[in-house]
Design a protein around this nucleic acid. Structure first.
Lengths: 222, 222
DNA sequence: TAGATTGTTAATCGATTAACAATC
DNA sequence: TAGATTGTTAATCGATTAACAATC
């Protein structure tokens, strides 16, 4: 397997979103295995640990090149490094956090982010009572200063933890100032220009799906 | 259109998860429209508001019965009520919240839950420093008392906002005491018996997908 | 070489989109 | 009746699963 120069770009085979989501699961599994001294693993072992089928694992990796040796398996440390690189979290990934309410604060305090090379580098709010306060080693900054701040920080990812009504405006400002990817916690469908990616997280949606299944399983059981 | 007795059960046509997720979007849209006095809407208007195609909307509804009148459209109030019923949020849906850390507290404080008929009825933790404290009108209860508490409360949904290492044990206890649906914030794949539903929320997964797309859009752009 | 396990191709499954007959 | 819009069927698209030739 020769290290082709444009391994991950080439002809852009369009990676399915579910594949990208599973990549983080593999990565976590590899980190754990590596920490416990395992050097080499097979796709069958990945299946045991993650409950994701061996076939699915191999198919997922195939979007990005070749990673293993037939008859042998995968080298844990190499695979780990390459997946991290694919997800752009081999180096620290700076993030703007907009909204210093309950959710924003909880996210700012979440240690898992740093472990995965995501770092919240600035925390914005519009509430004068909050601006200037220190949270988790960061000052809460006036949202109107986002532009000048991000000229320095150059973050491309922003988390929106603002009320529904403020989400679109916050997104617009972020995008105007260099942000190209948004994690949106407000239950409002954002309009963004081409080239900007949005992922929505909705607790209500998740709970509603669960709630529906309560009746479903009831019926099947009876 | 005759109101068949078992409209939503019948032959269990297996509703796709994406359909259930979109149901909450329709519901929110209908609530908004209803509040602004709209009586009747067409699937085309739903598309305008939600960016979900009219065809998709009609297909989604078709899993649950007939809701509209050809040539006329849908009655907002009726459709709203029926979707709420499908999702089991026409009545208050009680929820146990396990873990009173930053995330747990933020969720306990989230007003959106009550608006959608979800109510956190008890908040558990194992930390003696937290037990007994009052948060948002609720006492933080010793996790070991979950069983006796839920004998009274009879909640079937639990939110797990605990550290990764504690997730499986917390899930097991919850399930032993009547919980049949879990919203899991820990990045660990839970093992649960048949009949129990789990939804996982992973900020890291979301951020990783975004992070990947930064390079992708770069390449396409160039 | 024989056994193991990969990467990939083909078959299956499921969800979305498009088209249209039924009906208000 | 003519126009609008539904619910459903068929066509398309995309992701997952299974099978296997290539290869260490």
């Amino acid at each position: 397997m020769v290290q082709t120069p444009t391994e991950e770009s080439a002809s852009l085979p369009k990676v399915p979103i579910p594949t990208l989501e599973r990549l983080t699961t593999y990565l976590r599994c590899l980190v754990d295995l590596g920490a416990s001294g395992v050097q080499t693993i097979s796709s069958a072992q990945i299946e045991e640990h993650t409950r994701i089928s061996a076939a699915q694992f191999r198919k997922d990796l195939s979007y990005f090149g070749e990673f293993g040796k037939p008859g042998v398996g995968y080298q844990v440390s190499e695979l780990e490094a390459r997946i991290a690189r694919i997800l752009q979290i081999h180096k620290l990934q700076p993030i703007l956090l907009i909204g210093a309410g309950n959710l924003g604060m909880a996210l700012a305090a979440y240690p898992g982010l740093e472990e995965h090379k995501f770092r919240i580098v600035a925390l914005f709010d519009t509430d004068p009572h909050k601006i200037g306060k220190r949270v988790h080693g960061m000052d809460i900054i006036d949202f109107s200063q986002l532009g000048e701040i991000n000229e320095v920080l150059q973050a491309q990812i922003a988390i929106l933890a603002v009320p529904t009504g403020a989400a679109q405006a916050a997104a617009d400002t972020a995008i105007q100032n260099g942000v190209r990817a948004l994690l949106n916690f407000a239950p409002a469908p954002l309009k963004v220009p081409a080239g900007v990616v949005v992922r929505n997280v909705s607790f209500l949606q998740e709970l509603a799906v669960l709630s529906y299944h309560l009746t479903e399983t009831e019926k099947r059981g009876t």
